[in-house]
Each structure stands twice: as C-alpha cells, then as structure tokens.
Design a binder for these strands. Structure first.
Lengths: 346, 346
DNA sequence: GTGAAAGCGCTAACAC
DNA sequence: GTGTTAGCGCTTTCAC
C-alpha cells in the first residue's frame, strides 16, 4: 500500500468551480437549510458526487467555533463498569450527533488532570464528561479547574454547587440490599466494602450500616472487610470475614466481582448458599446470573447513567449557544434489586 | 453556572501583541525548535503565562494537515474483551502523543460503515483502527473502502493483502487448550464454540477439531455446541452438550464467560471438576482465577494487542509523512496457557 | 533571529 | 437565490 502525502482532499472550492457557483452556495447545499434553486442544487450535488467531496468537519469546527465533539475522561477502562458507562455515553452521543474524544486517566495524581483537560480544550470540544471516580475526598476534582470555557458533567460524585453531576444512588442500593437480607431472616449481616477512599464504596458501606442500625442491630468492626473491587481482593476479604465473624449468615458485597469470590469460597468450604450464608452483590453484571448459585444483586444501568450525562451536557451546550443561562443539575439514578438464588431463603 | 458564548479563546495574535513580537515568533516559542533569542523567548513565555494562552490543536491540525488524532471503531464496547483492547489502544496512543476519536458500531450492516469512516475522515484523523470483528466472511470489511486517504489497521481478522492486520492467534490457543486436555488424560473432549459467523469462533473450533483429529480421535457433531459468547448462552450450550455427549470428560469453551456457566452447571449437577469434567476457557479475564474451581484458560493480552495496532498505525503514518512507501504488516499475537484447578487432574 | 503574507477548508454577515 | 468579504487560529514560505 502506498499512500502519498499528496492524497489531497477535495475542497469546497473545487466543487464550487466544477459546478460554476460560489463556495457559499455549495455550503448551502451541503448544510441543507437556506434555499437554493432546485436547478443549482442539482448541479452542485452532481459535482459533489463526481468529485467525491466530503465536507471537513474540522474546518467547520474552526469557523463555527463549535466541534460537535465531546471530551470524555474515564478511569479504569479495563474494568467492566467504566466501559459500560462509556458505552452508554457513546450511544447517546451518537444519537445526538456528537463524536467522542476519549482520554483515560490512570492514576489520581493531580498533575495529569490539567493536562488532560487542556488537551481536550485544545481540540475545541464542546463539553466534557468527567467519569473519574472521586478518591480521597475532594482530592481529585475541586482542584484548580475553577472556570472552564466549556460545560462539564461530573459522574459518580457527590452533588456539588456549580456543577452538573450524574451519579448512581449507591446509598439507596446498599439499603435495599441490606433490607433484603433482613427480610430473608438474616441475623448477622456482614459487608465486604470497596476501597475506602472511593466515594461510592463509602456510600455503600454507610447504607449497610445505617440499615442495620435502624433495624436495631449493632454494627461491629469485625463485621466488615474491604477489598479493591477485584475478585482477587474479594477472596482475601471473605476469608478474613469468615474467621472474624463466624456467626455471619448474610453478606452484602460492594460489587459483583468480589461477590463471585464469596460464592467460590463458600463452595470450597461447603457453606450452603443461601441457607447458611445469603449473598447479595452490587452492579448487576451480566455474568452474575450465571454464578453458582445465581447472584442476587443491586442492578444499575450504566447505559442510562452514561446517557443521562450526555443529555445534561448537550442541554448545557445548547443553552450556551442560545445565550441562555445554564442550569446545573444533579441526577441520581436509581438502582434496582435483582433477586436470585444466592439470597432466596424461602 | 453561566457560561457565555463570549468566553473567548486567547489567540496567538494576542500573545504576539502583548509580547511585542510577531505571531510567528510566538509560534516558534510554543513549538520549541528553531531558534529564538533567549530574551525574546522570555518575553513571549511571560505573555503566554499571563494571558493563559493555550495553542489550538484544532487550528494547527487544519494548517498542518495533521491532527495527531486516531480514529478507533469498536464493536460491543459493553463487553470486557473489546474494552480491554480499547484500553491498550488508549495507552499506546497516549504514549505516542495521539488522541483517540472513538466511534462504536452496533450491528454489522454495511451502510453504517461508510458513514462511520466518513465521520472520522471529516475530522481529519491521521489513521484508523478498525476493531470490529469480522462476521459472515468478508461481509463486513473488503466492502467498498477501496482507497482510504489515511492508513488503517484492521484487528482480529484474517491476513489480507494490502492491509495491516493485528490478530490474536486463536487457532494456536485452541490447539494449546485441547492438547492440554489430552495431556490430562481426557478421552472425550467436547467444545462450546462462539457464534459461527465470527472468524475467531471458527478458528477456535478448528483448532480444537484439528488437535483431536491429529491425536487420532474422531470428531462428531454431537461433541460441540455453540453459544453467543454470553454466560447465558453458555448455560444453554452445556446443558445440551451434557445431554448429547454424556461421556464427555473434558471441554474446551471458547470464552471465559461461557466457561463460567459450565462450572456453575457442573456444580449444580454435582459433576466433579476436573475429575469428571475438565474445563478450559479462553481469554483470561481477571475473574476466571476466582471461579470455582479456578479456571484454566488461554490467556490473551488485549493491552498488547491494542498497543501493537497503534504502533503499526503510527509507523505507517510516519512513513507517509516522510514520503516513504508504507509496508503493511500482519501481526499475530501469541496467547498463553494458564493452568489452574479446573483442568488439573494430577 | 524575526516578520509579512498567504493559505489550511469552511461559514457568518452582508451585499446584490 | 446567490456572491463577496472577512474571518476562525495556526503554520509555512520566503523575505529581511
């Protein structure tokens, strides 16, 4: 294959010349709207066809000061959660006529943030979706980005004034999970949490704790352990928990990957699930329905989550275009309880 | 938050005026290279700092006819495999100074293809990575894209003249898996395949079949079933297989998700893994180490796969810049056998 | 070393 | 309806 640098783009000017009209007229034809006589339109369309002309969105972006491109910053794309969200973002962006410029962040160090944002702005994105979980309270965000020239939607964070945020209601989900275990007659409900510097992990733990307290049970430190979301860490956590809290008859695990290890360990030790130990996970990954036994879980819809973020962002972009004030929103997406055999005692 | 349309960008001209130099000189400073007197450089840098000037990559792309942006077209981003590959692509792109314009394809209908490619070209990507599995032999690709103005790297496809392709050696992996089962003393080795219109699914099946044949065993139709990669489909497949091929003492499953269901079903029926049924999966997803029992699998490194695609693409881009001929490459990435308890009979 | 002019491909604003 | 002019923000080329 020999591609030469010379492989020149057909420009609007060439089309104009070929059709014997001005560039403006060609522009009018390719952008629909504004009237052009049927005859002229025909001639232009022919020229376009013949020359194989494709308008340059890039040039248009520069001239219009609008790129119809959104910047998306994600974290941990190699995990299933974030990529499902990205999938939701991509679908909705497509639907609304935007493309995605994606960038991943690998660690939470503050330096990278500016750089990432700059690289997106340099390419004139119309808005930014920030899907990097907040770790270590306020460390990550709130940082320096006081005044961005484009709107931004933050994902999976606490509500904060001046920003649009889209999050899943982890606290509610945790309550639903724990209450479900109580309803199943569990008397000693443990918890395997996510990394404690993640906001969502803390929320899930709090939901568990509060629900037990409200039910008049006390919560001891030996009743919970934390992992790092991975199955491997779940395996370690459940071992410790079984040792420290042997009377445990139900456990709420902060994500499905870790719950998988709980089920595996139960199998290995001959602990009967759900009768000796009822298990509830969180996330609702597709595979959880085929764990053994099938896992009861708090199911969230990342498609919806990502879609909502795009909707909010595009709303803001449009408001700016029309010089209206942009209202920030806080969207809390509700999870649902998916009851399966791992917890069904009756 | 009130963002106004007026939120103007600082341009190179403003910096030039502030520093009392020409635009050209500012450009020389921001782009390093080419000499500028130390004194002038200082003044310019100060002005840049003070005004908060950030060069517009967009404008530069137009003027240089080079965007340092790669287009990536993926399929099934919601699954873990494709997103791990995307992750690898993102990492390497970052390393080499490119950004990613991502687009997802949802179905294999040919119409969408042109449109997707056009939308990338309209934004002047320097090259394209096409990570859409080939379904229905030749249907998807080979199509109309006779002559793209930019280089492209195809992923997970057969070698084809005139194109650079990066694929995993599924055939080899399948052979390794099957041979391993033979080595463990299995006499009746079944297979759960992926969807038969996927190239990789066919390869994996062929590797299994050929290995058995070479070992002097015959392969009957009732020895295999196919699913659609999902755990749910794996559950159905293993049920059928157990019914039709009851003497089966080993099974090679085309991906880990489906293998999960095999393990679950075995557990449910009290079939001992690996002694009554040895199981080998494919992909090496992180969770497979925490299945019960831990799954032996053919592990592939999507990070490496994606990275290689970017490397090849960037090489081609650079060759074009330097007006050298671009050589196409076919890269086959080798998988490895990860032996765990699900197959370890001795 | 530094600057002026032309151009990348398109559209907004205003003429006619 | 259609054309002209002047940018969008930068780089390239060629003077000086």
């Amino acid at each position: 294959m020999v591609l030469s640098k010379k492989n020149k783009r057909i420009t609007i000017k060439e089309v104009a010349d070929a059709a014997g009209v001005s560039m403006q007229t060609v522009s009018r034809v390719t952008n629909k709207f504004s009237y052009v006589s049927e005859e002229t339109r025909q001639r232009v369309e022919e020229a376009v066809e013949q020359l194989g002309y494709r308008p340059s969105t890039l040039a248009r972006s520069l001239s219009q000061q609008r790129s119809f491109t959104l910047g998306v910053v994600t974290f941990g794309l190699k995990y299933i959660g974030p990529s499902r969200t990205l999938n939701g973002i991509a679908d909705k962006a497509d639907e609304l006529g935007y493309m995605l410029l994606t960038k991943k962040l690998d660690n939470f160090d503050t330096n990278g943030i500016d750089e990432v944002i700059e690289s997106l702005l340099a390419r004139h994105v119309d808005g930014i979706i920030w899907d990097v979980p907040e770790v270590d309270e306020n460390q990550t965000w709130s940082h320096g980005i006081k005044s961005l020239p484009v709107p931004i939607v933050l994902m999976s964070m606490e509500q904060r004034p001046g920003y649009s945020v889209v999050s899943m209601d982890s606290y509610l989900g945790a309550q639903m999970a724990t209450q479900h275990l109580l309803d199943q007659g569990c008397k000693n409900i443990g918890h395997i949490a996510g990394p404690q510097d993640w906001w969502e992990a803390r929320l899930r733990q709090q939901g568990w704790r509060d629900t037990l307290t409200k039910a008049g049970m006390q919560v001891l430190d030996r009743q919970w352990e934390s992992g790092n979301w991975s199955s491997a860490s779940g395996a370690i956590a459940i071992e410790k928990l079984l040792a420290c809290y042997p009377e445990m008859d139900g456990v709420f695990v902060a994500n499905d990957q870790m719950a998988l290890s709980v089920l595996s360990e139960a199998c290995r030790r001959g602990i009967k699930v759900p009768n000796q130990l009822a298990v509830v996970g969180f996330d609702g990954i597709a595979e959880s329905a085929n764990f053994y036994p099938p896992l009861t879980t708090i199911s969230q819809d990342p498609q919806l989550l990502g879609g909502r973020a795009v909707e909010n962002l595009v709303e803001m972009i449009q408001a700016i275009q029309e010089n209206k004030p942009t209202a920030t929103q806080f969207s809390l997406i509700q999870p649902t309880l998916e009851i399966r055999e791992s917890s069904k005692r009756f």
